[in-house]
């Protein structure tokens, strides 16, 4: 039961992160490999403000998201100038830099040792089963996020960002500041990733830089593509499927020493199969 709860929490956390990823990549065409680093900022931000600065959970949570948003805003200036394939590669580079920062900014992140003892939010600690309470909380945030994104995407704001995805020049000729819209999408998408990262930090209570290497960004992107680009339900589907994948591999009896590599190999194969046969993914509405 505990294990099922653990998986469910992970699924919810990653769904939230993939919502952010898909908002940027599927709906707006910003195929970014930054979001693993954004999750890391949410995780380290929460840990740092709560543990080192002694701030409360809600304050730390939102402060971490604010900082992530600011970093995303800054990074968007060079990044958004690039054409799609260069964009992916350079965003990959930024996630490298993110990892290096997590590894080397000793005073904040405690370097390779990482930070431990990250607590759950206060109000769930009083529950009989705090983890269950936490899960319900994350689920609530996920549902609110889904609702918000749906509202945004169904509105004329959504029309504009989809238009920028298809053709920036044409959208500008229609009178919209394409760059501005893409920037705001990129920043908001980073906030979702930050929330997810903060939740992850509390859930596993100890974080270290290795969690937030480029592999995480790749995983998020694969989840988004697999579930379906430009699909909200697809985001959740992709997250759930790839959370269950390692369990399936373990079920197949693979020894734990090779589990990590087999997982990665599966991601690679999934990517190739998707790119070859169905670049829009399972429930997707947009193919790259």
């Amino acid at each position: 039961m505990d294990y099922l709860l653990h998986i469910s929490i992970l699924a919810a956390i990653y769904s939230l992160a993939v919502l952010g990823q898909n908002y940027a990549s599927g709906f707006t065409g910003l195929v970014s490999l930054n979001h693993g680093a954004f999750m890391g900022m949410g995780a380290y931000g929460l840990a740092y403000f709560m543990k080192t600065q002694g701030l409360s959970y809600p304050v730390s949570f939102f402060l971490a998201a604010l900082i992530t948003a600011i970093v995303a805003w800054i990074v968007s200036f060079p990044l958004l100038k690039l054409k799609d394939d260069a964009f992916v590669l350079v965003s990959f580079g930024f996630s490298f830099i993110g990892y290096n920062v997590f590894l080397n900014w000793q005073s904040v992140t405690n370097g390779a040792i990482g930070l431990k003892g990250i607590a759950l939010p206060e109000f769930v600690k009083t529950w009989e089963n705090p983890k269950l309470g936490f899960f319900i909380f994350i689920l609530a945030v996920l549902l609110v996020s889904l609702w918000s994104l749906k509202k945004i995407l169904d509105s004329s704001y959504g029309v504009i960002i989809r238009a920028t995805r298809e053709n920036q020049r044409v959208t500008q000729v229609s009178g919209h500041d394409a760059d501005g819209y893409r920037r705001s999408v990129f920043v908001l998408s980073s906030v979702f990733a930050s929330f997810a990262g903060s939740f992850l930090a509390s859930h596993i209570s100890a974080i270290d830089p290795l969690l937030f290497q480029y592999h995480l960004s790749v995983l998020l992107l694969v989840m988004a593509i697999l579930g379906g680009l430009a699909s909200l339900r697809g985001s959740v589907l992709g997250a759930v499927l790839l959370i269950l994948l390692p369990e399936a591999l373990r079920f197949l009896g693979l020894p734990s020493s090779v589990l990590a590599q087999c997982q990665q190999i599966s991601y690679g194969m999934i990517l190739i199969l998707l790119m070859y046969w169905r670049p829009k993914g399972l429930l997707g509405e947009y193919s790259i």
Binding site: Y157, V159, A163, G175, Y286
Partner: peptide, 26 residues
């Protein structure tokens, strides 16, 4: 704009939807 509908193509050209913002959405 290829991967969106014809209707949305035309709506995107309308000045009525200009200045759409997140503030307005909510």
């Amino acid at each position: 704009l290829p991967q969106i509908s014809v209707l949305e193509n035309l709506i995107s050209a309308s000045p009525l939807i200009r200045d759409a913002s997140l503030f307005q959405v909510f």
